[in-house]
Write a protein that binds this DNA or RNA. Structure first.
Length: 898
RNA sequence: GCGCGCCUAGCUCAGUUGGUUAGAGCAUCUCGUUUACACCGAGAGGGUCGGGGGUUCGAAUCCCUCGGCGCGCACCA
């Protein structure tokens, strides 16, 4: 066999390996079927990549997503499933437009209006294209095995057609309507944004109390008050019992006398301020709904640029922020300012994109009605019948409650319901330029909604675009086929198997996907939602440019290798929980990749002839038996873990086997026992497969080194069938795993313990590591097993001579220990410290007798014996027997010192 | 205000329906170049599982309560 270099250098191999995978075509399941790697009727497994926004580059959060999804996909592909992972990118309307607008302003001091719609869109498209190319390149660096031939873009022709069809269908069913409602208007961006796109931040602001007729009202926004002609209080508020709903009174206000009307409404919080408020229905959501309930007038006070309208009189045309102090000053002069609370904390609404201050406005917009009843026609949703009358909200509730869709971790179901149960109508239209155009046309009072423009003259298309989540809501199926065509891809891969994404996007996207898909296709979009957490820095802070704590996945991939980065993102983090990442952590996994490389290097030196299809070899020694048992165990565990989405646990189990059992014990024994060609071949072959989904590059490279250029690990077969009964039984065995075809080699544990204890005493007595010791073992019924492994014990414990008999008395000049019923005496002529030994024995006995007494007491307790399962009682009895026997031997040894 | 999560070794975290003397990695200390690997090996120290109470034969695990940290949603006139 050829010899590997001493150190694994990821940079030397990764690009070439990716190229080899990509050129093979096996990221595409059709090709796998064509080449006989996957059966045509195999179980499908599909994931649609949550498409990164074309706003720049991939960050570490994307890397987590890519790592987890690639693990699933590679595992399923190797398992023989018909596996498809579709890549894509999202136009992210508002985010991308905002980014380009900012760039345009920073670099050229121009606004989008300076360029005009068409020219501006060209700029955005160029930016999006550049981002896209960068993202694709980065995703490939991460080793993702996505089917690039099926790549999609959220704003391409197919997706656009789907959007127009979906809009029309919903409009025809009465689920989409156009109406005047209050929206979150961003004067800076000149668009409305949805509730979830609004950020709230706490801010201290002066809170003014004004005299308003007989009442005192409070506000932090005096500039909205010009149009206030209603004063509202709670119907149960005793302080204002004398006032009746509908009563009118005249009062002095900012620009002279007005007539105000009293309204009683339960929306008023009696405990807040004076319990009385005036309302501004045009510019406040709460006020808007009060006005709706009482059919009150609504009047616009502020224009769409944030300037006051003519109703403000002398303040008209001023920006609200400039006008505010002047208005307060005027009211003060008029003697209407009662007091000012300077310590008032309130939250102000800003646009999460661009940070513009939100100014609520009433506008004509397009909405999805989530409470409108419609009929399901051809239900593919378990628990919903054909012709059943439902609402979008009801379906959203049903599919999760009925477990058609599992959310992992389960606790996020609560967030889901919290959101869905309170769902309001979804505002679809945005006054942005980058995005899917609203497919509506107007001519006078006529409105036309259709997939294409209406015939006839004089029609003008709606200039607005759609919320980016409207198209995103269809991503489980639009990459597989059109909205009303049954493609083979749709039949095979939809519903998709898993939606894997960050928990922060549950409400934005997951809800919308379920809504759109259950309505449009009358089936669920995916079976399982797996939510990962956020990646934070080593101090638990969010990564941000201002903190300068960003870990760029590409940087660290260069530095430590992609495999190390992937492992560091997956191992030690659990679903739905945030995790901390540091270069130190990545470094430790770089070390592991190198360890695996070197283990392979050693194994290759000891394999005579590599055989890619090697079957389980015959065992010759106890160590062989033991390692195969451990391998089978880890095989079952990892498979079970992957099936249950326990990626971290799978990696930890694999690591423990690879490093602790295989490298530190078995490979050392292999050097002693020799002649391990077949078994090493088998083990290496198996662990490379097990590790492949986690660390695809290093495993693929080793595979190539062993089996040559034409063999590819990526499409090799997973070494155990999931239906194997050992895998199934795993969860019933609390402490040890599978072993139907491998003998449980518990006796190897005795060998290990004897060796470890001798090593401990060497260290404790500070004996020169080069010095070889003489040992006598009083072995009882373990005599044969110890004799069989005498060479292993001698070498690993560095012994000169070893004598093993059934029963031998302790030599005086020796230190001793008891292990698994075996007494071991190390001849330490001249160096034995009697006092120390006595002390050590007494200490151990004291600890042990405490343990034994505890067990004795427990077993003497009738309640325990009666109530605990017999299995547990039996275990405790065995432990007691063992403890007592050991105690006896220790006592005997102690006698020698007295 | 409603809801969720977290608090286990110096640090990062496992601990699956309550049942080994509570585990791992990193870090620390001691020793060591035994030809796969110093990105390594051998050994060690380190925890009254946030506090208190309860249920149980038995609690890190279930219940109550208090404390600290974090997050989401709503309200903010």
């Amino acid at each position: 066999m050829k010899e590997l270099p001493k150190t694994y250098e990821p940079k030397q191999y990764e690009d070439a390996i990716y190229q080899k995978w990509e050129e093979s075509g096996f990221f595409n399941p059709d090709k796998c079927i064509e080449k006989g790697i996957t059966k045509a009727d195999a179980e499908p497994f599909s994931i649609v990549l949550p498409p990164p926004n074309v706003t720049g580059t991939l960050h570490i959060g994307h890397a987590v997503m890519l790592a987890i999804e690639d693990i699933m996909v590679r595992y399923h592909r190797m398992k023989g499933d018909r596996t498809l992972w579709i890549p894509g990118t999202d136009h992210a309307a508002i985010a991308t437009q905002e980014k380009v607008e900012r760039k345009l302003w920073d670099e050229e001091k121009k606004t989008r209006h300076d360029l005009g719609r068409e020219a501006f869109l060209k700029r955005v498209e160029q930016f999006a294209q550049d981002s896209h190319d960068r993202i694709v390149n980065q995703a490939k660096k991460m080793g993702t095995s996505m089917d690039w031939s099926r790549e999609y873009y959220s704003l391409d022709k197919k997706r656009n057609l789907a959007v127009r069809k979906a809009f029309k269908k919903m409009y025809d069913d009465g689920l989409i309507y156009r109406g005047d409602r209050i929206v979150n208007w961003d004067p800076k961006m000149q668009s409305n944004v949805s509730d979830i796109e609004v950020n709230r931040k706490e801010e201290k602001a002066p809170f003014y109390y004004f005299q308003y007729g007989p009442f005192v009202i409070g506000t932090s926004r005096p500039e909205t008050k010009f149009g206030d002609k209603y004063v509202v209080m709670h119907p149960d508020d005793k302080r204002y019992a004398e006032y009746k709903d509908g009563d009118a009174f005249e009062c002095e206000w900012i620009n002279g006398k007005i007539v105000a009307t009293i309204i009683k409404d339960e929306a008023v919080d009696m405990a807040f301020g004076t319990g009385v408020m005036t309302i501004t229905p045009w510019h406040d959501a709460t006020d808007f709904f009060i006005a709706e309930r009482h059919k009150l007038d609504k009047e616009q006070v502020i224009d769409f640029n944030g300037n006051l309208l003519s109703i403000a009189g002398e303040f008209a045309g001023m920006h609200i922020l400039d006008a505010r102090p002047k208005i307060v000053e005027k009211l003060k002069e008029k003697g209407l300012l009662v007091k000012v609370d300077e310590e008032y904390m309130h939250s102000i609404a800003t646009n999460s994109r661009g940070g513009g201050l939100i100014e609520p406005q009433i506008m004509k917009q397009w909405w999805v009605d989530v409470n409108k009843t419609f009929k399901i026609k051809n239900s593919k949703i378990d628990g919903i019948e054909n012709k059943q009358e439902v609402t979008l909200k009801k379906v959203l509730q049903h599919v999760v409650r009925n477990k058609n869709i599992d959310i992992l971790p389960e606790r996020f179901e609560k967030s889901y319901f919290n959101w869905v149960d309170n769902l309001l109508d979804w505002c679809l239209s945005r006054q942005l330029w980058y995005g899917h155009r609203v497919p509506a046309w107007y001519r006078g009072d006529e409105v036309y909604v259709g997939v294409d423009a209406p015939e006839g003259d004089g029609w003008e298309q709606d200039s607005d675009t759609l919320d980016t989540w409207f198209s995103a809501g269809m991503f489980s199926f639009t990459p597989l086929g059109g909205i009303d065509e049954e493609t083979d891809d749709l039949k095979t891969y939809h519903p998709t198997s898993v939606l894997e994404t960050g928990y922060d996007i549950l409400t934005f996207w997951v809800v919308r996907m379920i809504l759109m898909t259950t309505y449009l296709r009358e089936e669920i979009p995916f079976k399982t939602v797996y939510l990962h957490g956020l990646v934070r820095d080593d101090q638990g802070r969010k990564m941000s440019k201002s903190l300068d704590n960003i870990i760029d996945p590409l940087d660290v991939s260069q530095k430590f290798g992609t495999d190390a980065v992937r492992l560091s993102l997956v191992i030690g983090s659990s679903p739905g929980n945030d995790s901390k990442l540091s270069e130190e952590k990545i470094g430790s996994f770089r070390n592991f990749a190198n360890k695996l490389w070197n283990m392979s290097r050693f194994m290759l030196l000891n394999i005579n002839e590599s055989n890619i299809n090697i079957e389980k070899p015959e065992v010759k020694t106890l160590a062989d038996e033991w390692i195969l048992w451990c391998l089978k165990d880890v095989l079952c565990r990892v498979t079970t873990d992957l099936e249950k989405f326990n990626f971290s646990s799978a990696g930890e189990n694999l690591r423990a086997f690879t490093w602790d059992d295989l490298a530190d014990w078995y490979l050392e024994i292999a050097k002693i026992e020799g002649d391990k060609s077949e078994i090493l071949n088998y083990i290496l072959n198996t662990i490379l497969k097990l590790w492949h989904p986690f660390m695809p590059f290093v495993t693929e490279q080793i595979w190539t080194e062993i089996y040559g250029e034409h063999e590819m690990l990526m499409i090799s077969r997973w070494p155990i069938d999931v239906s194997n009964e050992d895998v199934k039984k795993l969860k019933d065995r609390p402490f040890f795993g599978a072993s139907s075809d491998v003998t449980d080699p518990a006796s190897f544990g005795i060998i290990q313990n004897v060796i470890t204890n001798i090593r401990f005493l060497r260290s404790d007595y500070k004996i020169d590591p080069a010095k070889k010791l003489n040992v006598i073992i009083s072995a009882g019924d373990k005599k044969d097993i110890l004799r069989e492994n005498v060479e292993v014990i001698k070498k690993l414990a560095r012994l000169e001579n070893i004598t093993i008999e059934t029963k031998i008395e302790k030599p005086v000049q020796s230190v001793a220990f008891v292990e698994s019923g075996v007494e071991v005496f190390i001849n330490l002529e001249g160096v034995v410290d009697f006092a120390k030994e006595k002390d050590r024995l007494q200490k151990e006995m004291k600890q042990l007798s405490g343990y034994v007494t505890g067990l004795d007491k427990k077993l003497g307790n009738k309640q325990f014996v009666d109530n605990a399962p017999t299995e547990v009682v039996k275990q405790e009895k065995e432990k007691l027997e063992e403890g007592k026997s050991k105690l006896k031997k220790l006592a005997h040894q102690l006698e020698n010192f007295s």
